[in-house]
Amino acid sequence: MARIIEKRHLTPVTKLFVVEAPLVARNAAPGQFVIVRVSESGERVPISITDFSRQAGTITIVVQVVGKTSGMICAMEEGDEILDFAGPLGRPAPLPEKGHVVLVGGGFGAGAIYPLARELQQRGVRVSAIVGARNKELLILRELLESASDDYHICTDDGSIGHKGFVTERLQDLLSANAGFTHCFAIGPMPMMRALAEATKPSGLTTFVSLDPIMVDGTGMCGSCRVTVDGELKFACVDGPFFDAHKVNFDEAVVRSKMYVDEERLASELATAAR
């Protein structure tokens, strides 16, 4: 069990939780995730670690409502106990020791790239951040990330704040302007990461994306999270979640992530009806 000691409403559909989990915080590193289950009949879902403090023994997560389980998590309050909270899982992001890293985050990823930024900054690596949201209201954790990066770019679909357009367009602009990036790391929805992989491919910019396939155990036991990278079978929960974006078979990853759309719709409808 892990107690929620702070909850923040970032947007109507995105909540931040600071969770007391000293054992998870102890070895946590940027880019890792936890597996969360919130009820006895519940699913195990992976959630990125958006911040961690070894001293305080806390893990911060940001959850965006997309279906039943994320909805249940977001409905929890300060003082509530999360039934199961396992981690840190996956390998830390393979961050460089020097250079100029561009971090790209969309959706919950706009928060989840924060620990990468913080670590890079500590290493003395220059950090540019590009975050995307549909509109101003849905942009999250601006101050946090802005403080941990040298440049900070916002993109919104409607232009209500920052640049109007996708994060990939902004990245293209910066690449064309010879921003001098040596690496790119991205966390966000699959279509964004796929577009990003295409955007950085021509220039050969080393690009890592955090894949989010459907997981069950998160310990390498089931193969639900398998993805094909450079023609090889990988388990995202133990070999990833970060992979070389230019080698990921996105077609397959996108198809597989839609395996249970019918069941997910049913679960959501039943959950809404019950409320």
Partner: peptide
Amino acid sequence: NHKGIYSANEFLTRVNLMRANAFPDYDT
């Protein structure tokens, strides 16, 4: 890696540990 192809561990874990046979009473 087509949808609908499982390892035995995943298939059995979904049903035994996560009780997917009782979906939607259970969420998996």
